[in-house]
Nucleic acid binder design. Structure first.
Lengths: 331, 331
DNA sequence: TTGTAGGCGTTATCAG
DNA sequence: CTGATAACGCCTACAA
């Protein structure tokens, strides 16, 4: 590894002078500084991250709490977006977890690595995170609210305005909703759903709202069965996510019915699959790329000027992605 | 942050003594060492990663080269598996890339961060990687071969033995193959395919082998159209991956045909989707979890004893996942 | 404008 | 068995 000392030697200067040149600091003539930088580049000198971190207590490293959601396309996209943005800004990304043997909390892990900031991108709140959230480390959460911290949320509540608008215009009046586990997200979606229905004067019988789980086709399959068994069957079912819809579709088919002829379906997330299915799945497309980017942006703002940074709640709008799984009842 | 100095103060010992106790080194009585460790734990002391790295030039940090394939379920699963394993062993994971402004190569990036080892998990070889591969940094590649380096491969060639066995037993004699971009993987698969067919005495007309792209349903759709137009149409089509099959399915449906009644289909990868589709997709299930774990294991071996480590080629077997997309022609 | 020296938190060496 | 002490590579006051 080429160190600053070697560069100094090569330049016939002291380490201090070279350091100043490299960091664009005063105390060295501009021409000489430029020349030093050039030599450094030729020598392929890059400052040792550990040394710099130790000295400056800035690591240029962002911690990301991701749990095991890596296998969900929506979250993968968010992560990819974060990664791309951070990289462009010269930050690295390290996974932060608490499952290690040492019994270290996420907070301690972040401290140990001297992460400049942490991005929380997991669904369920964990006691473990509280310590982190209450610390001085800049934190931005995705799809999750923490006291006094910036959160980037998909527009869970408002999305249903668009969804119900769309379905209403397609002639649907009896709309059922299968929702995921209880939590911030689910509560916002339920509220949004009910509000949007009221706006159009749609009645929502209690049995039209059924609990299932996110990303679990089986559960949504069962919920679908319940809905299909109702006397006053809905004309359209909303699913907690695109993957869950598959469970519903299987159940519908099993009963000898078909989408969208006998019943319409609407997903959530807008993963690639939704466009590839036949019939294509009408769904609400979340803008994962932008969610990731906004979160990254906010975090860097918080890092680069912690004193002036004021936490906020950022909402990223998605949009209805029409599809063949919703029948136009007007015709 | 609580430092070793604070622990020493609290214990009324020197930093040196505490360091020995913490690192289980001789030069301190076992009882006192144990007591020191307990105090350290109570104080929630964790060694500063940067300082330790600087001193030991071991970072407990693994670099992962992943490019933008994060959004493919197969790779996400591998990454998740790597992450889980490394974490358990006390290593962190940092993304390594070369797209940063600084014009730093992956190698330089890894050096700067003093990564203990690097995992290469991307499809296409890049000139940039060569520098890394030729360096002293332990490297393990996934689904890719590098001179003198350990590679963990899915059993691309052998898988077709199993696949063709399965299809033959289901009565298929005219089997076509749509394959992905040229490369190590594709070449191995093609060879495996041809060999397996010869084993059963199956003839493979040239027009039965069509090029498309990985993970691009549209391309596979076009390839499918070509195959369906043949005078002597195959009874079964092999797709480069499960996602690509969706493009084929769409094309088949568009022609008024159906899977598996008119034509059978077989995927590759065995992502979750394959089991959720109707008809369920017969496919070759790659053991992503094990591929990731084996790669991680090998890398740690190489790191922990570089002198004795001998690079090898590890093949991880998958298995045929039967599905309704293949018709039993025997009946 | 330049060079020197101290220290960030650790570990490791070497006297006591 | 114990405690100073010197690095690791870098930055930054401060002295020249």
């Amino acid at each position: 590894m080429v160190t600053i000392k070697m560069v100094a030697q090569r330049c016939g200067l002291s380490v201090g002078a070279v350091s100043k040149a490299l960091n664009h600091q005063p105390g060295i003539s501009p021409e000489k500084a430029a020349w030093v930088r050039q030599v450094a580049e030729e020598m392929r000198y890059y400052p040792n991250a550990a040394a710099r971190t130790l000295k400056t207590s800035r690591s240029n490293n962002i911690g990301v709490v991701f749990q095991n959601r890596l296998v969900h396309e929506y979250f993968s996209e968010i992560l990819e977006s974060i990664r791309a943005y951070m990289e462009k800004r010269g930050y690295d990304i390290t996974f932060l977890n608490d499952e290690r043997d040492s019994g270290m909390s996420v907070y301690e892990h972040a401290m140990q690595r001297q992460c400049d900031g942490v991005l929380i991108a997991q669904g369920s709140a964990r006691a473990d995170l509280d310590r982190l959230v209450q610390s001085d480390i800049p934190v931005v959460a995705i799809d999750q609210l923490f006291q006094g911290r910036t959160a980037v949320l998909s527009d869970n509540a408002d999305s249903f305005n668009q969804i119900i608008d769309y379905l209403y215009q397609m002639g649907h009046r009896r709309i059922a909703m299968i929702h995921g586990e209880d939590g911030e997200v689910t509560r916002m979606r339920l509220a949004g759903f009910h509000r949007a229905c009221r706006k159009w004067g749609l009645e929502v019988p209690e049995e039209y709202v059924v609990a299932a789980k996110f990303q679990e086709p089986k559960d949504s399959g069962l919920a679908t069965r319940q809905l299909l068994a109702l006397k006053n069957r809905p004309t359209c079912i909303l699913y907690p996510d695109d993957i869950s819809y598959l469970g519903g579709a299987t159940e519908i088919e099993r009963q000898g019915l078909s989408v969208p002829e006998d019943i319409s379906c609407f997903g959530y997330d807008g993963i690639r699959l939704s466009r590839l299915l036949r019939p294509s799945l009408a769904t609400y497309r979340q803008d994962a790329e932008q969610i990731g980017r906004r979160a990254a942006e906010e975090l860097l703002l918080a890092i680069e000027d912690p004193k002036c940074y004021v936490p906020q709640i950022v909402t990223v709008a998605g949009s209805v992605q029409p599809g063949d799984s919703v029948k136009d009842l007007n015709q």
